[in-house]
Design a protein around this nucleic acid. Structure first.
Length: 420
RNA sequence: GUGGCUGUAGUUCAGUUGGUUAGAAUGCCAGGUUGUGGCCCUGGAGGUCGUGGGUUCAAGUCCCACCAGCCACCCCA
């Protein structure tokens, strides 16, 4: 058999790239308005960077990373998410020294070896942003507001915002103990998966989708009721700011993130149009990450969002037409003697900034016309021996019926006027 | 990673209880109009029926394995 894309990867073909470009331009515009600057980090990093930041015990690090050793036996990993790399770059390049708050965004492929499904690929694309340097709720609110704004700019409704606070190094361990104690009392009745999590990551038990688990844990204490003074007031301020910004949300005390570095604020944006892979974007605060990676203690908040999932719902709500690139003019040769001249003229128009196309298959005039129509060119210029002699050509507007004779010398000027 | 469903021209699909040259629509190419598109008409090209085994006189149709996609779980963007 011939070569195929490997499992979980796909080609983004010319039929879809205009959509991608459109989405990218929208989100770059939003980032620009919020004054976030782009950062581009390598697609692979030392494996330990991810293990350290995401957490050794998480599913991502435990069983989903593309890890390999290079020829000098160093363990490398294709990045499974963006924050670790951005924080590494922030520390390595001392970005925090030049200014107290650094606002960055990225757009990059990510890699996770999961079983593929619609909206879940092994190479997928994420965009995201990080505000590094502010411990205050205003930064959390801005990140959330910006996430919402991107989807609003893309006219996507049916998105729901859930927020929670997962506490800090002071209150979370305390809460975990309380929760664990409660969970142990009902452990025998819980699903196998949940039972395993009681010791390793008890908060995830509350996030189980197993109906029986949900019923059994309905009355369990929630982190939101056990936050310390500082976390509680921070969370309260974030909520108040969201209200001020007219952003509606629901507090979900069971919301947890799959990455260990989160503290305090955690949030998730979901869509009801996506099936079970319904998370469009997620994020939160990570005040301990910088020092965990060996930098100076520096607070941060951020979010990440998947582009493929976004594409899926944009396609469902299709409103994007005519985004494909098309030539302004197609130059057709009426006979073989004028072909070389037509190519020359095409190149000339191109160098003057006009999108011009011509025939490269030595086809009949009829076939060239058909091609021009298929390419959805605005104009066709027909040139043959007669026209060459007189230095004119028949200019035809494909959207209307007639054609007119124009002077070849005037063509660039005519085109720039007409396309207005 | 676990369980289930699916896999036929470029694309969307049909293919009768296994039976001899695998079809349609659309797209593509050409002609009808030897200097002109979109409509219409005519003709043509295009498939080792996901891959590899097996059962059978005979397999697109049945069985097995593998591969890929999809759905749920898991996880998450």
């Amino acid at each position: 058999m011939t070569f195929k894309t490997i499992r979980g990867t796909k080609d983004i073909l010319p039929a879809e790239t205009p959509r991608w470009q459109y989405v990218e331009s929208v989100l770059r515009a939003v980032f620009h308005r919020f004054n976030y600057k782009e950062i581009r980090t390598p697609v692979f990093e030392q494996t330990s960077l991810f293990a350290r930041s995401i957490g050794e015990l998480t599913d991502i690090v435990g069983k989903e990373m593309y890890t390999f050793t290079d020829r000098s036996s160093e363990s490398l990993t294709l990045k499974p998410e963006g924050t670790a790399s951005v924080m590494r770059a922030f520390i390595q390049n001392n970005l925090g020294e030049a200014q107290p708050l650094v606002k960055l965004y990225y757009l990059s492929p990510m890699f996770r070896q999961e079983r593929p499904q619609a909206g879940r690929l092994r190479q997928f694309h994420q965009f995201g942003a990080e505000a590094i340097g502010s411990p205050f709720p205003e930064a959390d609110a801005e990140i959330i507001a910006m996430t919402i704004e991107i989807y609003r700019q893309l006219s996507l409704a049916h998105c729901a915002l859930k927020i929670n606070s997962v506490g800090c190094e002071k209150c979370r361990p305390r809460y975990k103990k309380i929760l664990q104690a409660e969970l142990r009392t009902i452990a025998p009745q819980l699903s196998e998966e949940s039972r395993r999590r009681i010791e390793q990551n008890p908060m995830r038990v509350l996030d189980s989708k197993d109906e029986n688990d949900i019923r059994l844990t309905a009355a369990m204490p929630l982190i939101t009721d056990h936050l310390c003074e500082e976390c509680s007031s921070h969370f309260g301020n974030v909520k108040a700011l969201l209200t001020t910004l007219h952003i509606s949300y629901t507090v979900d005390g069971r919301l947890v993130r799959g990455l260990d570095y989160y503290t305090k604020t955690a949030f998730e944006l979901t869509s009801d149009e996506l099936g079970s892979q319904d998370a469009l974007a997620g994020g939160g605060r990570y005040d301990l990450l910088a020092q965990e990676l060996g930098g100076k203690p520096t607070p941060g908040v951020g979010f990440a969002a998947g582009i493929e999932r976004l594409m899926m719902i944009i396609e469902k709500n299709t409103m994007l037409n005519g985004l494909d690139v098309r030539p302004t003019i197609f130059l057709a040769a009426a006979d073989s003697s004028s072909r070389s001249w037509v190519i020359e003229k095409t190149m000339e128009l191109r160098s003057r900034g006009i999108a011009a196309e011509t025939d490269f298959l030595q086809r009949s005039l009829k076939a060239q016309m058909r091609e021009a129509d298929r390419q959805r060119a605005a104009f066709v210029l027909v040139i043959g021996a007669e026209e060459l002699k007189r230095q004119t050509a028949a200019l035809k507007n494909l959207r209307v019926k007639g054609e007119r004779e124009v002077s070849l010398a005037d063509l660039p000027k005519i085109l720039s006027e007409e396309s207005l």
